[in-house]
């Protein structure tokens, strides 16, 4: 077993050196496509942060002054209950803990502002799901009515930011997804071609191996390992680049105006490490599949 492992590793290393230019091209292509794949996931997560407060069909948020107690909020809740089944489908109260969690995501890129928010000064929220989200006039009427209630700080409507962001999210994710799929296909084909070239360069060895009784899997293995390494190295490079870009973006966003909405478009919650892991696994799979297909297809060189 040890001699077989040593053989596979030695042959893989030799093949890497033999096809250096093709290997470099395959690794770079894999890295670029995996980077765009990772960026797609990160951007998607950033948009999710931005839209976090509107999850679950929420179309209106009533912000309540900090420190308002149960008795003071009862007026607001009474007004909401009155509309239940008429214009409001459901509503829920987002308390201090819930509102701080929302702030964590919305102000992820602006830690200075986030630090100013505490349990004592943050506004809590009523999140309202309307009967019909398309009836904008009714929602505006509700907003005007709730703004007049005591202890209501502001009332936000989703239409003011949600539609634009959703459209932007769809646009960005469609094109970045298309791009990484195309590039990943290119990387896979390049790995496929690299392995084909490697097998052609070693056709006499393969012929001898088959004649002396090596199994097809034993012959394939160094080539598959080579493809796996193409994908894995590409994944490592892509993860490094992704970390760098995310770090620079996060630092840059802090300089944006507070009302730019960009402060939520960052990923600082460890999600980038999950993405790095996904990239490494995905890169390895693509590399192995590309090389495995070539190794099976061209075994009879």
């Amino acid at each position: 077993m040890i001699s077989r492992i040593a053989y596979v590793l030695r042959e893989t290393a030799a093949s890497f050196q033999r096809n250096l230019t093709l290997t470099v091209a395959a690794v770079i292509t894999a890295a670029v496509s995996l980077l765009i794949f990772g960026l797609t996931l990160i951007i998607q997560h950033g948009f999710d942060n931005l839209l976090a407060q509107w999850e679950g069909g929420v179309e209106m948020i009533v912000h309540v002054n900090a420190g308002a107690g149960d008795a003071q909020r009862a007026v607001i809740e009474e007004a909401l209950v009155q509309q239940e089944g008429i214009t409001i489908d459901s509503w829920r109260y987002c308390d201090v803990t819930c509102s701080l969690a929302d702030a964590d995501r919305l102000l992820a890129g602006d830690p200075t502002t986030r630090e100013l928010l505490t349990a004592e000064n943050i506004t809590t929220q009523y999140k309202v799901v309307p009967m019909d989200a398309t009836q904008v006039d009714i929602l505006r009427g509700l907003r005007d009515r709730y703004l007049g209630l005591p202890n209501v700080n502001t009332v936000q409507l989703a239409e003011e930011q949600l539609d634009l962001i959703s459209e932007l999210q769809g646009f960005v994710s469609t094109y970045t997804t298309g791009l990484w799929i195309a590039l990943m296909a290119a990387a896979s084909l390049l790995i496929w071609n690299t392995i084909r070239t490697a097998m052609f360069a070693r056709r006499r060895e393969i012929e001898v191996m088959k004649l002396v009784g090596a199994t097809d899997w034993f012959i394939r293995l160094p080539f598959m390992l080579e493809g796996l390494l193409h994908g894995l190295i590409g994944g490592v490079l892509a993860s490094g680049a992704l970390w760098f870009i995310n770090d620079r973006w996060t630092a840059g966003v802090q300089g944006f105006p507070d009302n730019s909405g960009m402060t939520a478009l960052v990923v600082v919650d460890g999600y980038q490490w999950q993405v790095a892991l996904i990239i490494l696994v995905f890169g390895s799979i693509v590399g192995t599949v590309g090389s495995g297909t070539a190794a099976s297809r061209f075994l009879d060189v």
Partner: peptide
């Protein structure tokens, strides 16, 4: 059908190596 990048020893050993014979046998 010899492998030109391998020595005499390596060419012969290759036949044993690829069928998984241990090093001490080779």
């Amino acid at each position: 059908k010899l492998l030109l990048n391998k020595t005499v020893f390596e060419n012969v050993a290759f036949a044993l190596e690829v069928i998984g014979r241990p090093k001490h046998v080779i």
